[in-house]
Amino acid sequence: MGVTAEWVSSPVPAEPAEAELMRRVAAGEEAAFRLLAERHTPALLRFTDRMLRNRAEAEEVAQEVLFRLWRQAARFDPDRARLGTWLHAIAWRLCLDRLRRRGADLPLDAAAEAADAAPSPLEASSRRADLAALETHLAALPHRQRAALTLFYHQEMEGPEAAAALRLDLRAFWSLLRRGRAALRARMQGG
């Protein structure tokens, strides 16, 4: 794994409770695993849902992330990142693998949803329609831009954390976020 200067120089340490729980998971304690899983699974599902736009696949990826949490707990270093960042980094790699296997940048199911989600004139002003439009346009963005926007806004990660999850240095992350914002704005304004 390429460790960037930003990853090392701007660490967001894990909370002690979480580091302790990870030590217990590494020792094979199932109760500690369950506690961490309950804490992180909803956020992981939000991220994988938005990246993959396929519920079954999103659940499979979240499950794989939890399995790796168990198997690789001893490798987690709380001085380098929060557990949430570490888990999102794993989730991002797994999502990217699946998106690449699909072959096209716009997944087929997203294209189908895009057609279904086109807001009617009556709905145009509602927030729900706005959110549907947002999902449609987000799905059409390149994977990395979508991931950057999702981590920064939807998952409320700070820049260094989101950069670490995407294995990018901080400058590259800000640049990616800028391109994502611009592309999304252009798409939303274009309808």
Partner: peptide
């Protein structure tokens, strides 16, 4: 999802 991952573990 948690139950499935626990079963797998």
């Amino acid at each position: 999802v948690i139950a499935a991952s626990l079963a797998r573990i």
